[in-house]
Amino acid sequence: MTVSDKTLILDARQVKQKIKRMAYEIYENHSKDRTVVIAGIDGQGYTLSKLLAKELEAISPIKTLLTKVHLNKTEPQQDTVYIDCDLKEVKKRVIVVVDDVLNTGRTLAYSLKPFLDVEVKCIEIAVLVNRSHSSFPILPKYTGYELATTIKDHVEVVLGKETAVFLK
């Protein structure tokens, strides 16, 4: 695929700015909490969650408990959905589930499963890009960028050395 096959939506500077703003919003909503659980969905969601947790700790006294949500994204009902920390660690805490793109909401809906087995303070959703094609009752509390697309469009989030968001 050549660069001309995709349209740049957000460059690295803009992505960093969106993550910082999302961290400030989390801090504003949970300034009285000592710890917030940042649960990133395996893949780019987890990469984004690490960046978000780092930014939240840089701007606030809030400690973050970073955990990864493991699930089969193509067939989430086929395999067990689990997190890589003990459920006791998330008990009575604020949970922010993080993914790179919210499309239909299916992946995020299934990612909530481990947290339904334990008493938590609240569960919120953070996404870098919201495409607003929800088929599931999932609405993000923290959104980096709202993007109107057709269902056939593809949003590609690249986090790392060449950070950017593209529309293909």
Score class of each variant (00 low, 15 high):
Asp86Ile: 01
Thr67Ile: 00
Asn72Phe: 08
Gln78Arg: 10
Tyr145Ala: 04
Phe136Pro: 05
Gly43Val: 05
Val157Thr: 06
Glu146Gly: 03
Ile59Trp: 10
Leu71Ser: 07
Pro140Glu: 09
Thr2Cys: 05
Val127Leu: 07
Pro76Leu: 05
Ser134Phe: 03
Met22Thr: 14
Ile9Pro: 10
Val97Gln: 06
Val165Cys: 09
Glu25Ser: 10
Thr7Asp: 12
Gln17Asn: 15
Thr107Met: 04
Ile138Gly: 07
Asp33Val: 00
Thr80Arg: 07
Val120Asp: 10
Arg13Thr: 13
Lys68Glu: 15
Tyr24Leu: 13
Thr143Asn: 03
Gly40Ala: 02
Ala39Leu: 11
Val3Asn: 15
Ile26Thr: 08
Glu156Arg: 02
Lys32Tyr: 11
Phe115Val: 00
Phe115Ile: 01
Thr149His: 12
Asp86Trp: 07
Gln78Cys: 00
Val98Cys: 03
Thr80Pro: 09
Leu108Lys: 04
Lys54Ala: 15
Lys63Arg: 15
Val129Asp: 08
Asp42Leu: 15
Gln17His: 13
Ser4Pro: 01
Gly40Lys: 04
Leu87His: 11
Ser31Asn: 13
Gly144Pro: 13
Gly144His: 09
Lys113Ser: 05
Lys91Cys: 12
Leu108Asn: 05
Ser132Gln: 14
Gly105Ala: 05
Pro137Ala: 02
Leu51Gln: 13
Leu65Tyr: 05
Asn103Asp: 15
Lys68Ser: 02
Gly105Cys: 10
Gln77Phe: 11
Leu112Val: 01
